[in-house]
C-alpha cells in the first residue's frame, strides 16, 4: 500500500470542501471493505482518503408517506438489514442486505459504498432499481437527483461528477411487491453470479408497475425493458411470463469469468426472472384477494 493522508470530516460541507481541495488523488471511503482491499492489492493508490463515516448528514433511515424511505449513504448493511422502517416499507432491501457478505462485513460496508463501487454485481442495485429509487448526489453546485439506474455508467464508473458524492437514496412508497433473487454457490460470502430483481403489482388481474433489473450480466446493473413492456398491463399467463423471462435473458450481455460462464448467466437470468415473476404474481394475487 502506498502512503496516504487520512481525513475524517465531521460534516458534509467539510467533506465536500476536502474533496474539492484534495482533488483527483483523493478517494472517498466509508466502510472500506472494498476500497481497502483494492488498495492492499495495489489496484488503487490514493494520495488521500476522506472518510465519510463521521458526517452525520449521511447517516440515518427515515420514512415519510410522501417521499418514502430515505437511506443515508453511510448507513451500513447491518443497519439496513435490521431497520424496522425498511422492513416495513421495503422488506426486499432487508432481505437483500441480510444475504450480503458476512455479519462482520455488513457491520462495516455501507449502502453508498455498494453503489459507488459500481460493480455490475452490486447486490443493492437491482432491488433499488426496481423500487424506482433515486440517488441524491451532492456537490459544490448543490444537490441533484438521479434514478439509481442512471447512476451506473460502467464497471467502477458512476454519474458522480468531480467534487460530488452520494448523499442518500430515496425509495418512493410502493404499493407493489419486490423480490431480489441472488444466485451464488454459497448462502453467504459470495458475489452474485446473477442477481434478478422484480417489482410489480396486480390490479384487477393485470400486472402494473412491472420493473425488472438484472445484476452481474452486463457492464452495469440493467433494466430488462422489453420484458417490462411485454408484461405491463397484461394478464400474466405462464407462457407470457416465460416469454418475459426469455426477453430478459436476451436483454443482458454477460461475460465469462471465474464465477460463471456467459451461457450459464444468461440462462440463470431466464430462470430467476421466471421464478421471481411466478412468486410475485402469486403473492400479489393473494394480496389482491384479501
Amino acid at each position: 500500500m502506498q502512503p496516504f493522508e487520512y481525513h475524517s470530516p465531521r460534516s458534509l460541507p467539510e467533506a465536500l470542501r476536502l474533496l474539492q481541495e484534495l482533488g483527483d488523488g483523493a478517494r472517498l471511503i466509508a466502510g472500506g471493505t472494498d476500497l481497502l482491499l483494492r488498495m492492499k492489492q495495489g489496484q488503487l493508490a490514493p494520495r488521500a482518503l476522506i472518510d465519510l463515516r463521521r458526517a452525520a448528514e449521511l447517516h440515518g433511515i427515515s420514512f415519510s408517506p410522501e417521499e418514502g424511505l430515505r437511506i443515508g449513504a453511510a448507513v451500513t448493511l447491518r443497519e439496513l438489514q435490521r431497520s424496522p422502517l425498511v422492513r416495513d416499507h421495503c422488506p426486499c432491501l432487508c432481505e437483500t442486505a441480510s444475504w450480503m457478505a458476512s455479519e462482520q462485513v455488513r457491520s462495516l460496508a455501507t449502502v453508498g459504498g455498494n453503489l459507488c463501487n459500481a460493480s455490475p454485481a452490486a447486490d443493492l442495485a437491482p432491488p433499488l432499481m426496481v423500487l424506482d429509487a433515486q440517488a441524491v448526489l451532492v456537490g459544490p453546485q448543490g444537490e441533484r437527483r438521479l434514478p439509481v439506474e442512471a447512476f451506473f455508467l460502467g464497471p467502477g464508473q458512476t454519474a458522480l461528477d468531480r467534487g460530488e458524492l452520494l448523499k442518500e437514496v430515496l425509495v418512493p412508497p410502493t404499493p407493489g411487491n419486490a423480490l431480489y433473487l441472488k444466485h451464488a454457490p454459497r448462502a453467504f460470502m459470495d458475489i452474485a453470479v446473477v442477481g434478478v430483481a422484480v417489482h410489480l403489482r396486480m390490479e384487477r388481474g393485470l400486472a402494473r408497475a412491472v420493473r425488472i433489473a438484472l445484476g452481474a450480466v452486463g457492464p452495469t446493473p440493467l433494466r430488462a425493458g422489453p420484458s417490462e413492456a411485454l408484461l405491463e398491463g397484461s394478464a400474466p399467463t405462464a407462457s407470457l411470463l416465460e416469454e418475459a423471462a426469455d426477453l430478459a435473458a436476451r436483454a443482458c450481455s454477460p461475460i465469462d469469468d471465474l464465477r460463471g460462464s456467459a451461457w450459464y448467466r444468461r440462462r440463470m437470468v431466464r430462470v430467476l426472472t421466471r421464478r421471481a415473476l411466478d412468486r410475485l404474481c402469486a403473492a400479489s394475487l393473494v394480496g389482491e384477494g384479501t
Binding site: 422488506p91 432487508c94 441480510s98 444475504w99 441472488k182 448462502a187 421464478r275 411466478d278
Partner: peptide, 20 residues
C-alpha cells in the same frame, strides 16, 4: 439445516429461489 429455512427475512436465502 443451513440453507433455506425460510422466515420472512430468512437468515439464509433459499438456494432454490422458491423453485416449485
Amino acid at each position: 439445516a443451513g440453507w433455506g429455512q425460510g422466515t420472512p427475512v430468512s437468515p439464509a436465502r433459499d438456494p432454490f429461489h422458491g423453485a416449485p
